[in-house]
Write a protein that binds this DNA or RNA. Sequence first.
DNA 1: GCGACAG
DNA 2: ATCTTGTCGC
Length: 237
Amino acid sequence: MQGPEKTGGMNRQFPAWADNYAEAVAIQNSLRNRVMVQPLDLDSVRWLAAADVSFSKKDPRLYAAVLLFSLPDLQLVEVCDQIAEATFPYIPGLLSFREAPALLPLFDRLSQKPDVILVDGQGMAHPRRFGIASHIGVLLDIPTIGCAKSRLVGTFNAVPAVRGQWTELVEDGEVVGRVLCTRDGVKPIFLSVGHRVDLESATELVLKVTQKYRLPEPIRRAHSWVNAMRKGEQKCR
DNA sequence: GCGACAG
DNA sequence: ATCTTGTCGC
């Protein structure tokens, strides 16, 4: 008799996704070339979405939500959420295989197609230039921006704690993102291209939707929403 | 072999 | 990310 199999931490079936590390990496390598880096006309952005996932250390359930905001008023106009079973573990570099399956279905339920999506994680600032923001962007073919709270890869010079200041995030001689200070006196966030945007457009848009706090308002609200879901609260607004 | 390591 | 209590500061 054997105890629980330790095959590397991976779980069972995952239809359109992956069953193991090697397969997941192969999928990333096959999709990475679809990423488009190009300017995004911010004046044409009417609908902006933010996606996030929360979970407990205990149960394997994922609390996922996509919030839709109107611009330039930045008002929350719609929320689509769901509780899904986690079928893939968290592995640095493979975050999308854990969280994206729970988020993608939610976009189909939105009444408006987002002009851009803010994702809590990296875009091209990733070992294979294909973080969760890029993955979601390519699969939906919608512009996406990676907004992470910490670094996955790359080196950078310290950023002055002044709103709007930024330094380049570099890996292997490539500029993979920006370390951006969104508010005076706060730690910077890690911005990177997800899909169909460039760093200039991403920086401008993120600063535009970052008001009183360190994180962009849509990301904050999404984070708050999924956390409330997990705690079984009703305070959503 | 030893660290690093989005969420 | 989550698990946790108080605590320092505007």
